[in-house]
Design a protein around this nucleic acid. Structure first.
Lengths: 212, 212
DNA sequence: ACTTAAATCGACCACATTGGTCTAAATGCC
DNA sequence: GGCATTTAGACCAATGTGGTCGATTTAAGT
């Protein structure tokens, strides 16, 4: 088989995945401890190095996994036939929350990776990374209907502000629900509140009904 | 003398302060290394423990220092006779940038401290911390002129969105100027751009001239 | 039931790093 | 000169590091 680890029982796989993602997300590559990983994953030390030969290999495996998830479960799901910027990102925000609910550490891990700027990556991972950046850029900027915006406003700045508000709300939500098991929570009221912010943004930046 | 460290030549004091703040900001208390601190501060190991008896004492000293700076150089400077929310935070944003330019690590250090939630602090530090929270709350919410806001908008939400936009701009600025010595930079063009965002927020949330 | 192969653990390795100490030299001061 | 303070870094026991290995259990095949 291509990878020993892949053919493990799902539950153990998840335990190891989560333990390792958390450890790297919390401490970065160098300071992450394989001892802590095996302890939290509740496996013997030997196993970790049986599945992944070295600490670095483990890191690359996780990186590949996270890039894949983010690309397939998040970016690729963003619908660019939706030409309304805010509507597009309303759905994107929901997708992001779903991914976070299922795998809180995928996004955290990638977060720490982004600001660690490693000099060189294995070819296939570099490719995935490039693909992710390209896809991300496209999903944000392509095929937006500029005519929805009021004439006198700076659309570039509006884009940024909308993103900051979405990020701000996400951040606040995460911190106010810290500890609670996100995935078994009824998210509806939070989405409702999220939508109110988006409506405010629309009435701030979009043309009013009359002048369309 | 009350504290050996205080009566050092300014330049050496700064070297030690910066080295230690950076180390704790990057790694948190446990993982921070006194060896790295002395290396970066370019002093002998003995000195650090001569000035501050233990690692913990050093940490508390820094904490006290950072709380003090933030309180005196930032929070206390915010003018609450300015009743216009956005104008108040325009000046607050500038103060924050100035503090950051002079001491990038003070805010970073406090940032890591906030989310580390230590169980118990020495009395005097706990007091400073409480004072900071109280002062912070006051400076944000007290004496705001609500009548500036348009009648149909949710002011609480507007507050938050304004803060998210300011934080977003700060974050973007920091990351786009990363590496450059912030303090020797001409910040004017960036303030100009910052103001444009604030103007957009005003026209989004405030009453127009006519309806005042 | 017997053999062989894969999976699993954790003691163990050599080495690096930890917070903190202490000696001995350098420097400042009268 | 002589006393006190400042300085550097070798040194300490303790802990932690990534990674290995032999021993034991489990699974599979026939």
């Amino acid at each position: 088989m291509t990878h020993l680890f892949e053919s493990l029982e799902e539950e153990k796989k998840q335990r190891i995945l989560n333990a390792a993602l958390n450890e790297f997300a919390d401490h970065g590559f160098e300071q992450a401890s394989t001892n802590r990983i095996v302890k939290h994953a509740k496996i013997g030390k030997g196993m970790l190095f049986h599945y992944f030969n070295t600490k670095k290999d483990l890191y690359y495996y996780l990186l590949h996994y996270c890039l894949d998830r983010t690309l397939n479960d998040y970016l690729k799901q963003i619908d660019i036939t939706e030409r309304d910027f805010i509507e597009r990102f309303k759905k994107a925000g929901e997708l992001k929350m779903e991914l976070f609910a299922e795998h809180p550490n995928v996004l955290n891990f990638l977060g720490t990776f982004f600001l660690a700027d490693i000099k060189e990556l294995p070819g296939d991972i570099q490719a995935k990374y490039d693909q992710l950046q390209k896809e991300g850029y496209e999903k944000i900027y392509s095929n937006i209907d500029y005519s929805l915006f009021r004439e006198n406003i700076d659309v570039e700045k509006a884009f940024k502000m909308i993103n900051w508000v979405i990020e701000g709300y996400e951040k606040e939500l995460k911190s106010s629900l810290k500890g609670q098991s996100f995935s078994e929570l009824n998210m509806e009221p939070y989405f409702k509140e999220f939508y109110k912010y988006l409506e405010m943004l629309k009435s701030a930046f979009y043309k009013k009904e009359g002048e369309k």
